[in-house]
Design a protein around this nucleic acid. Structure first.
Lengths: 107, 107
DNA sequence: TTGACAAATCAAGAACTGTTGATATTATGA
DNA sequence: TCATAATATCAACAGTTCTTGATTTGTCAA
């Protein structure tokens, strides 16, 4: 139940890592306004194309964005489910342990 | 306002980076149960002392924990204010842009 | 004082991450 | 089919982060 397994922690670390870069945060900031193609982001962020591709892959591997091809264009969208998963992780960390958890004597 | 400045993004990246490591997440997981000295954590996590010190410093520099000396012991406590700051960042990223934001044409 | 313990800091190396420019892939339209 | 556009992938390098063991600092008690 509230037990944090190795894998949970790894998953959490991976999610936070995906969010731990300025370029990636700027990408997400833009995706709040809706789907964007790589070309839009390249322009907006004034970043080399391969750099954007790299960061989009990190975000995608973490599940924070999804992509969709339309012709030659790839469109990226924020995955808000994963974002709320991150929110839950934070809440979990901030929450006072339940009586049951406390009885188990921590992790 | 809702404008995301360079510094905001940097701060956010720094916070997420502090959370992006398994050892550090395990430390925080334990601090949920209250103040702990380094020795407790060293035992619980079976980690070298210098390693713990290193990660505690990262957490402290990010403002996620605070420390307090008591005799020879250093006690670390989770800083829940910073944790809710992180929560706000996530909410901000997940939120639909306001009409005003949308009018400004994104970031 | 001195000895011993808790924790921080340091130096060196290993591992990982991000950047860049070049090349490969996929799709389109002539 | 060919040229071209959009994107992904790759290889090399630079920079950063993490780990380890050794040393240092601060505190206490004998």
């Amino acid at each position: 139940m509230a037990t944090r397994t190795r894998t949970d922690t790894d998953r959490a670390a991976r999610l936070f890592h995906a969010l731990s870069d300025g370029t990636r945060l700027s990408i997400l900031e833009r995706l709040r306004f809706g789907e964007r193609c790589v070309c839009d982001l390249t322009d907006a962020l004034d970043a080399a194309q391969s750099r954007l591709s790299f960061h989009l892959k990190v975000l995608k591997d973490a599940g924070l964005v999804t992509d969709r091809r339309d012709g030659r264009w790839m469109y990226y969208t924020m995955n808000s489910e994963t974002l709320s998963e991150v929110g839950d992780l934070i809440e979990g960390l901030a929450s006072t342990p339940s009586a049951a958890e406390r009885k188990k004597g921590c992790c």
